[in-house]
C-alpha cells in the first residue's frame, strides 16, 4: 500500500463483541448470555474524499461497524485509526477532538433529534458541547441553507418536520463542526423516491464543497451504485468483499455478493422472466453462535465440506484493489 494517500479512517482487525462482561443481574448469578459477535476481524479503509458504501442484510453488523469507527460502541480488540492516529482507546480531550472531525447521520432522523429542542437549538448543540467560540460557529441560517431548508424552520420542533426535512436537519447538524468524515446510516430509508433523489444530490454537493469522506451504510444497492467509489459487503460480522464499486458490481468474487446483487429488485421488468434471482436459501444465522469456518458456508452453493467448514477465509486479492474473503473465489468467478 506504499505511495497511496493515508486513509482518513481505518479499521484494523476490528472486533466488537457484546455481552462479554457480565452485566446487571448476571453479575450475581454468574450466568452468562452468549457473546454476540457483531463485528469480527474487520479491516476497512476510507480514503480522503472517498465514498465507501457498506452493504449487507440486517444483522450483518453494518451499523455496529459504523458506530465503532466513531467510537460510539466499545472496541473489543483491534484498532480504529483516524488520520493515522490510533483512537481506539483515546479518552478525554483526545476523543473530543476526534469526534469533532467524524460525525454520524443516524438512521431514524426523528428519533435522533430531541423533541424538546427547536431546530436552531439542535443545530447549535454541537457548538455548545465542543465549546466552540461564537465567532467560529456557522450560523443556523447558513446551515439550513446548506441543506436547502428554509430558515423559517429554525424555530420549529422536530415533530413538525417531514421525514425528508428531519433527515436534512440531521445532515446539517453533522456538518456544523465541519467534519472530515461522515458516517451515514441508511440515509435514504423510509423516504419516497423523489426525496431519495434530493438527499443523494445534497450529499454529493456537500462532499464536493467540504471535501468530506463518507461511509454510507445501506441495504439499498441502488444508492451505493449511484454514489459510492468503493463497496464493502458485510455478512454476519465479517467484511466478505471490498473493491471499487464497478468491479464489485460487475465481477463479484464472493458468492454472497453475487446472491445479494441478483436479488436486488431493479426497475426493469425484463429481469423478471429471463433472469431469476439466485435465491439464498434460509436466513442469516445468529451472531450469537456464528457458523464455524467461513460464516457463509451454511447458505453457500459453492461450499465444500473441508476448508469452508473449518477455516475462516483470509483476505485474497482478485486484483490490486479488489479483495475477497473466500476459499473458493476462483471457482466462483469461473
Amino acid at each position: 500500500m506504499e505511495g497511496k494517500k493515508a486513509p482518513r479512517a481505518e479499521a484494523r482487525d476490528l472486533c466488537v463483541h457484546f455481552g462479554q462482561r457480565a452485566a446487571g443481574f448476571a453479575k450475581f448469578t454468574g450466568r452468562r448470555a452468549p457473546v454476540v459477535h457483531a463485528v469480527d476481524d474487520v479491516s476497512l479503509e476510507i480514503g480522503p474524499r472517498e465514498v465507501v458504501g457498506l452493504v449487507g442484510e440486517s444483522g450483518s453488523g453494518k451499523t455496529t461497524l459504523g458506530k465503532a469507527l466513531l467510537r460510539l460502541v466499545p472496541v473489543t480488540s483491534g484498532q480504529v485509526l483516524f488520520d493515522g492516529d490510533d483512537v481506539s482507546h483515546s479518552r478525554g480531550d483526545q476523543i473530543r477532538q476526534f469526534r469533532r472531525q467524524a460525525q454520524m447521520i443516524f438512521q431514524d432522523p426523528h428519533a435522533s433529534l430531541s423533541p424538546r429542542l427547536t431546530i436552531s437549538q439542535l443545530l447549535e448543540e454541537p457548538y455548545r458541547i465542543h465549546r466552540i467560540p461564537e465567532e467560529d460557529r456557522t450560523s443556523v441560517a447558513h446551515l439550513l441553507e446548506t441543506v436547502e431548508l428554509s430558515s423559517e424552520l429554525a424555530n420549529k420542533y422536530p415533530h413538525e418536520l417531514s421525514g425528508g426535512q428531519a433527515r436534512r436537519v440531521g445532515i446539517a447538524r453533522a456538518l456544523a463542526l465541519h467534519p472530515k468524515l461522515l458516517i451515514a446510516d441508511e440515509p435514504t430509508a423510509g423516504l419516497d423516491v423523489s426525496a431519495i433523489g434530493n438527499i443523494l444530490n445534497l450529499m454529493n454537493d456537500i462532499k464536493d464543497e467540504y471535501g468530506i469522506s463518507y461511509l454510507i451504510i445501506t441495504h439499498d444497492i441502488g444508492v451505493v451504485e449511484y454514489i459510492a467509489d468503493r463497496l464493502a459487503v458485510m455478512y454476519l460480522g465479517n467484511v466478505v468483499e471490498v473493491g471499487p464499486t464497478e468491479r464489485v458490481l460487475d465481477d463479484a468474487a464472493h458468492p454472497y455478493t453475487r446472491a445479494l446483487l441478483s436479488t436486488v429488485p431493479k426497475p426493469d421488468p425484463r429481469r423478471k422472466d429471463g433472469h431469476a434471482p439466485s435465491l439464498l436459501p434460509g436466513e442469516i444465522p445468529s451472531p450469537k453462535n456464528p457458523p464455524s469456518g467461513c460464516r457463509f458456508h451454511t447458505r453457500c452453493a459453492y461450499s465444500d465440506n473441508g476448508l469452508c467448514r473449518t477455516v475462516m477465509p483470509k483476505q485474497e486479492w482478485v486484483d490490486e484493489s479488489h479483495a475477497v474473503y473466500c476459499h473458493r473465489w476462483r471457482t466462483v468467478r469461473g
Binding site: 442484510e57 441495504h219 444497492i221 446472491a259 436486488v264 429488485p265
Partner: peptide, 11 residues
C-alpha cells in the same frame, strides 16, 4: 424485509 428475503417472498 431485507432484499434477500424480499426476493424469496416476492417469488
Amino acid at each position: 424485509l431485507d432484499v434477500t428475503l424480499q426476493a424469496q417472498i416476492l417469488s
